[in-house]
Design a protein around this nucleic acid. Sequence first.
DNA 1: CGACGGGACGC
DNA 2: CGACGGGACGC
Length: 580
Amino acid sequence: MASSDKHSRRYDSSRGDRGGGGDSFYGSDGGKYGGRESKYDDPPHSRLFIVCGKSITEEDFRESFSKYGTIDEIWVVKDRTSEEPKGVTYIKFSKTSEAALAMEEMNGRCIGGHPRPLKVLIAHSRDQGSRRDMNEEERLLRLFVVVPKSQSEADLREHFSQFGDIDYVSIVRDRSTRDSKGFGYVKYHRMSHAAKAYEGCDRSYKPVFADPKPQKPEGLKFEGGGREMRGGDMRELRSMDGGYGYSSAPVAPHHSPFDSISYMDTSGLNPDGVTRLTVIASPHLNQDQLWKLFDLIPGLDYCDLRKDRKAGQARGVATVVYNNHQSATYAREKLHGFEYPPGQRLIVKLDYHDMPPGPPPPIMGGGPGGPGGPPFSSLGRGISGSLPPMNGTVGGSPPVGMGVSPPSNISSGGQPNNNIQQNLAQLAETIAQATSLIQAAGLNPVGPGGAPSLGGNQGPPGGETYDPSYCSVKLPPPQPLAPVDSAVAERLFIVCHPTPPPIYALKDVFGRFGNLIDIYMLNGKTFGYAKYAEKESADKAIAALHGQEVLGSRLKVMEADPQHDKGDSGRKRLRIDDQT
DNA sequence: CGACGGGACGC
DNA sequence: CGACGGGACGC
């Protein structure tokens, strides 16, 4: 029935502000449920699914359930044609805790003179269907909370015990230093208590019902914001992705292609089981480099690079073969369009050569940076509509993930998939490093077709560049980032007026003085910080950038005040196994 | 003026 | 076992 659009229009699936990139883009947070599920589950888990005797009426339900809260709707499901009640009823409450209480109180009771006891459950989201999994009972007892690093388990417990009996609280800590990682879990014995806490705890804890612990990769999970997958988003992604294509529609801000979605079967994208790719790359790349890049994805069998010439342009053309089609699909999804080296976007296509006749997958826009394709980063103004022009120092992230991750749970073929998840994080990091290395090695790119790329970094290595539409001052060429674990030699305080440019632009600009560890803007604020591993680099950045303009935003750049030290948090007692 | 992020369970 | 209708912004 043309499932109506009204509960599926949301692009802001995740307040995807992970990994320092790209938040400021899609607004800052906004609503308190950063992109709820459909209206049937707003707030989350506020709807009951009841299995009941067929003769029980809406009024029977109203009588018994209204005492638990505000009922938005009671729907006694009837067969569409016969009008026969199906013995199933939905009751939507205005609050999660009301639904939880009603469930706890009414489950197993009889109403309306019918002998069959009610079975009362929290309804699954509409898209989730009737699938149940094992931890059904565990499911809504645990909250995921953000906790100031200075707070201990005891502090957490103290705040959350007011809502009910706590099973346990935990704060996730660094294995070796025992430092809090800034988040934790609170588990109750009863859902109504968890729900009360969810609604009533200090908002700074940003509570959400915790995702079930790993293991059972049930269904699809979104990440970033780390909230539950929302069906609407899923649908949207599917249609956005429409088979092979890259949508030209604005995409949600996935910051790295490797962190966006956990489990999604991509086999549908590669129905013929193609394991072979054709790659068109910069002529500067050698086979070894290409091998290393594609070998980041498990299952690489073969990589052969040859030179080619098209329209007078030298380029590298390679054939890459994986030992399974999922890896091939994944490689295409993630590396097509990746700037490698920075400024040179790879074109990666499934190779249908040797395949039964059929249309090869269309590649929209003729392939980024490819002949006929729009020159990628003639940056200018149109940033928001296009992919962030990742150029080398911008963390080297591949272009925006188009949302599909490798099959992670395929039961066929015995592919080792447990590791893929973990590999992804490293993968992203490795690619970033590789990009930096290539950059450092002087493989600075020439913009596609001579078009200027971001910040005009097409200049000869070592030369300065100047693109006033990007930055009001001449900039050194891109530099590799410093390792993330570098000691901070100097921190800068940055103010941007009127609004901060996209973070990747800042990262690029501030990265050009070398040794940049990290730069971030605070969510919704006009200021932020940059950390450098060398004082000299930081000082150069101040000298060059203070008072200058990046993409229309005026910068103030100065040394940051020392970080406000939160009390004792360092180490408490490292060892306490000593009883005295 | 404008001052401190994110974060998913190392079994 | 027992899972999804009807109505539909409001300028």
